[in-house]
């Protein structure tokens, strides 16, 4: 069932929370408060919210280091996410994982991964477990088109089809693999065609349209639950910021980025809401509500204690 106008407002606010989360991280990064790398998902919020909202909380999710949006959309506490970014004990991984390893199995988030296709077999394994346990949970794996040349990705496509897993693979094709145009590094850059070659039921969709993403994932998730998997969705999108902080972005023009901003998911969702009868004041209110979520998370994270040094030695084994 498509998102109702009310639910679309919620999705709009959720996308704003994710956008503002990344903006807050950039600001913290510039203040020197963030350790390590930060790979923003700005411009890709619709794939996260549309996809994760079409699933149940007990469905499984794996993603990559560009997965803050998916983690939050799946239900990861924004406070716990922000605290993790700042390396606090209250972080979702107690400060041990950081930006690239958000995990919260209580909402099905099995882990973000710093190896671009590393989490794809984990989602497939969770999907296999669901079948073995006679459950109807599905697993969704998010990755970028930069991941489709890693061996484990291709190996996992094969196994998912052979074993008919309740697995949904979502390729966020944002045109650039790290700092290189993907068409220069990838033989069949329309990645859904690769998946078709492996026997997947595969589609390419507009990844900046949150309703389209939602509808597609909802449809295939129902089929996967009933044993019709696996499915592959190539969601065309655009990363509005660099690959990571400090990326000089010499691989694209400012004009190209400016043009992409006209088509970015939050702007588009706002226009759609206005068409559906929302007022500018409604959008302003939703923006303020998202802002409040981030302000609260920042306050929580910044005032949380760092983990004691001795905690470095825990959580290796059960």
């Amino acid at each position: 069932m498509p998102l109702t106008p009310e639910r679309l407002q919620d999705a709009y606010r959720q996308m704003l929370v994710i956008r503002k989360f990344e903006e807050a991280i950039r600001s913290l990064y510039q203040q020197g408060k963030i350790r390590g790398s930060f790979h923003p998902c700005v411009g890709q919020e619709a794939t996260a919210v549309g996809g994760c909202w079409a699933l149940r909380q007990d469905d499984y999710l794996t993603c990559t280091y560009r997965g803050h949006g998916q983690a939050i959309a799946k239900g990861l506490s924004v406070r716990a996410a922000m605290a993790e970014m700042l390396g606090k004990a209250a972080g979702c991984s107690k400060g041990k994982g950081g930006s690239m390893h958000f995990t919260d199995p209580s909402v099905g988030l099995l882990g973000a991964n710093a190896i671009v296709a590393g989490g794809v077999p984990h989602a497939a394994g969770a999907a296999l477990a669901s079948r073995l346990q006679k459950k109807d949970n599905v697993a969704i794996a998010y990755f970028g088109e930069g991941a489709v040349n890693q061996g484990v990705f291709l190996e996992s496509l094969n196994l998912a089809v052979i074993w008919k897993l309740p697995l949904i693979l979502v390729c966020e094709n944002n045109l650039y693999s790290e700092m290189s145009p993907s068409h220069e590094t990838t033989s069949v850059v329309e990645t859904y065609k690769r998946a078709e070659g492996f026997g997947f039921k595969a589609v390419q969709i507009d990844g900046n349209d949150v309703e389209a993403v939602y509808n597609t994932v909802e449809t295939v998730a129902a089929k996967a639950r009933a044993g019709g998997g696996p499915f592959y969705i190539e969601a065309m999108t655009y990363r509005l910021w660099g690959h990571m902080m400090g990326d000089p972005e010499i691989y694209r023009t400012k004009e190209e980025v400016a043009k992409a901003k006209e088509n970015e998911p939050i702007v588009r969702c706002g226009k759609r809401l206005l068409e559906l009868g929302c007022s500018d004041a409604d959008l302003t209110r939703l923006d303020a509500e998202a802002e409040a979520v981030i302000a609260d998370a920042l306050e929580f994270a910044e005032t949380s204690p760092a983990p004691p040094p001795a905690d470095a030695l825990t959580d290796v084994f059960i």
Binding site: P105, L110, P121, G125, L132, Q133, G151, E155
Partner: peptide, 19 residues
């Protein structure tokens, strides 16, 4: 299949959810 990386990876995913 002869694809060690993927089936070890599937084992990890299955292990994470109770197998």
């Amino acid at each position: 299949p002869i694809s060690e990386s993927s089936f070890v990876g599937l084992g990890i995913g299955a292990a994470m959810v109770g197998m």
